[in-house]
């Protein structure tokens, strides 16, 4: 008997008014694995994560998380159950300090009365030493890479079982991108499952266990990350001639 997946999306549908953005997407994430979703712009990748998080309402289908149907639950309740999203725009609290941003990341836990949440600050600082140097600065003063680290750190403060990352490398220099993806791979080893959306398909598939290719609101292909990386259609559309160029290129 196999353990049930951590996240199971069944026939997921989302519509903006009358325009459907997702037509019946099925997706699974196993505990402790990294799953990548790749695909062209406008395929509905960001919509998919927003729908899984509850930021966007579903027009059909359902989301099960940790064995519970969470389709009707609010964003806040999903956060409390261990689902976290680092959105494309980071959505930090610019006029609060780095440390306050992190502390608020544990809001759901602190509200439940978990007093040890403050101790997690140190482990976040250990993972992102640069945030420690800047702990008293306003989040708005950080560089792009630091902002992404803060966004990930803030999400980790909630101790998620599943961390969803929307384009973590967007707007970052190749070196920082590699650093961030390296940290993502490390997080998996601490037991956090990751659902990753990434423009840099090659780098994403390199650290992933499974991959999905999303095209115009539907899953076009799915398989293990190595299968996808060697699939001729994927190579042509998403990896392209870059297969000859160095990995970190974005």
């Amino acid at each position: 008997m196999k353990a049930p997946p951590l996240l199971q999306a069944t026939d997921l549908r989302v519509a903006y008014g009358k325009i459907e953005a997702l037509y019946g997407v099925n997706l699974q994430v196993e505990p402790g694995s990294i799953v990548s979703v790749i695909g062209p712009n406008g395929a509905g990748k960001t919509t998919l994560l927003a729908a899984l998080m509850g930021v966007l309402p579903l027009s059909g289908g359902r989301v099960e998380f940790a064995g519970r149907d969470v389709s009707k639950l609010s964003v806040e309740v999903r956060v409390a159950q261990g689902l976290s999203l680092v959105p494309e725009r980071r959505e930090l609290f610019g006029e609060l300090s780095v440390e306050d941003n992190l502390r608020l990341g544990a809001f759901a836990r602190l509200r439940r009365g978990e007093r040890n949440a403050a101790g997690d600050l140190e482990s976040i600082y250990a993972r992102f030493p640069r945030l420690k140097d800047r702990r008293r600065q306003f989040a708005a003063t950080l560089s792009g890479g630091e902002r992404q680290m803060l966004a990930i750190g803030r999400a980790l403060m909630a101790r998620p079982k599943l961390l969803m990352l929307d384009e973590p490398s967007l707007g970052l220099a190749p070196l920082i991108t590699r650093e961030i993806l390296h940290i993502v791979a490390e997080l998996r080893d601490t037991g956090v499952a990751i659902l990753l959306i990434e423009q840099n398909a090659r780098a994403a598939l390199q650290i992933s266990d499974l991959g999905y290719v999303l095209e115009t609101g539907e899953v076009a292909l799915q398989g293990s990350a190595t299968e996808l990386a060697n699939d001729p259609r994927v190579i042509e559309s998403y990896l392209g001639l870059r297969s000859a160029t160095p990995v970190a290129q974005t």
Partner: peptide, 11 residues
């Protein structure tokens, strides 16, 4: 400061 960010941390 940021309504979306606040919801994402559970506020």
């Amino acid at each position: 400061i940021n309504r979306v960010g606040a919801r994402l941390v559970g506020i």
